[in-house]
């Protein structure tokens, strides 16, 4: 820092416009990613702009997209039937571009059957409708424990289910991605589709909780 910058009355170093910098040297995985990316671009498998576009597209999806699909299923029985039978066609009819995303499967939660989704092998997730997964979904803690003790894990999320409800854990081990269609909350009969969508949180579409209840 130049001396003439020190024209005010305290003497510590400060810089309000510091760049965001990664700490430490790149990890092995970062080096590997960079090497493969540069090779693929150099060999014209895809362009840097293709990559940027795909990252932009992936990051732009949010749970609000999934919520709109759920709200439509709650208000339109024909759409719900199609969503369960042929999710790709159903969500494309709402204007979503599924692109090359893996096959989507929609699991309906009811008063007697409660699905909860995990990927024990990595972090497979219905990104096409929910965007990137939350950190807890990727944690070894969640991945390791929800398959062994789903009721205990749901309890920690504040979700209590009676023994009369079958809990079905779905482990996304291969080419399918699973989205939970949660039950429509009681007291929501008179809400608009838009108001319904506001009750649908990310977590209820993974199956660790229920949709929010409508305000009284």
């Amino acid at each position: 820092m130049s001396a003439d910058h020190h024209d005010h009355d305290h003497d510590h170093d400060h810089d309000d416009h510091a760049a965001i910098e990664e700490g430490g040297p790149p990890t092995e995985f970062e080096l590997l990613e960079r090497a493969i990316r540069e090779l693929l671009i150099e060999k014209e498998v895809f362009s840097a702009d293709d990559l940027r576009r795909q990252v932009d597209r992936t990051d732009s999806v949010s749970p609000a997209d999934g919520a709109k699909v759920v709200a439509r299923a709650w208000t339109d029985p024909a759409f719900k039937t199609q969503l369960l039978a042929d999710p790709k066609t159903a969500i494309e009819s709402l204007g979503y571009d599924v692109g090359p995303a893996p096959n989507l499967v929609v699991l309906e939660n009811t008063s007697t059957l409660h699905h909860v989704v995990v990927c024990t092998l990595c972090s497979c997730y219905p990104r096409v409708l929910l965007g990137p997964p939350p950190d807890w979904y990727k944690s070894k803690e969640y991945r390791g424990r929800v398959v062994v003790d789903p009721r205990g894990v749901l309890h920690e999320f504040g979700t209590e289910l009676s023994d009369q409800v079958e809990i079905k854990v779905v482990d996304s081990t291969a080419d399918m991605r699973y989205l939970v269609l949660p039950p429509r909350p009681a007291g929501s009969e008179n809400l608009s589709e838009q108001a319904l969508a506001a009750l649908v949180t990310r977590d209820c579409m993974v199956g660790v909780t229920f949709p929010d209840r409508p305000a009284q």
Binding site: D149, P150, R151, D163, E166, I167, K168, S172, A174, M176
Partner: peptide, 17 residues
């Protein structure tokens, strides 16, 4: 799957194989 499973016998798990 688990010999010591604590929940009801009706609980299930599905995976793609």
């Amino acid at each position: 799957i688990w010999s010591g499973y604590q929940g009801p016998a009706t609980d299930t798990l599905s995976a793609d194989i």
